[in-house]
Amino acid sequence: MSLVYAGVLSHAPGITGRADLAKNTGLRDEFYAALDQQRQEIEASGAEALIVVAAEHFANFFMNNMPAYCIGIGDRYEGPIEDPDWLKIAKTSVPGAGDLAAKITREVMHTVDVAYAEEWKFDHGIMVPLNFLTPQYDLPIIPVNINCQGPPLTPLPRAWAFGEALRGACDSVPEKVAIVGTGGISHWPATPDSGKINEAWDRDFLDRLMRNDRAALMDYDDEETYQEAGQGGFEIRTFITIAAAAGGLGELQFYTAELPIFAVGCTVAKFSLDSAS
């Protein structure tokens, strides 16, 4: 087995870009500490590469050719695309893991059709996680995108199948691989409703996620999610993919809905790695 770590975390741009505006600095710093704990756990796993399953934000793909799933197979990536002063993350070059990513892509293709890309520009959806998880940018990254913005969106059972395929692919290579999923739960990002969070909806979802209850996780439809959790709620696909890849129970390490300036319920969790199903 070569998958050595699986976890999830939030990625909203405010987490870095509006850090100074958070009123509850104690809670903000607890969140940052949980992210640093996640960094330490990934390092302790001995991971030689990190797969980041993120949500497409129109940094790389547009509706002229929008993949449901895409895996980055490049050797280097650039980011962030955003104004660095706005995101408060400097523009940098991030190492990829092209050969490993290509092997993983080939394996995934046995069960799930994916797009792949040798060019990829990271936006906040990947740069914010990397800012905390590999602050020196010294761990090779395999970026993965799921279209969560531009309907038609991939059905949830396909996101689950994609997670299982990623797990099988990771277990087929000798390298030690860590995987994180990064998305929001309920949120209304970049709209006038930014900062709105449906905490009850979030906690119910997280309960299903930590139990790794496939049937309960599949029991959402996008219309209901949109009403209760906003457009940002479509990003549960990234978390569901990780649950499927991990196979084991989750452990919620941090959650708060009390940092609205970050415009998302801030989440950090990890999963035990049961045998791939």
Partner: peptide, 14 residues
């Protein structure tokens, strides 16, 4: 993708 998702009120305490 969105028609209005809310009334445009501020949900940010800051």
């Amino acid at each position: 993708v969105y028609a209005m998702t809310g009334g445009g009120d501020s949900f940010t305490t800051e």
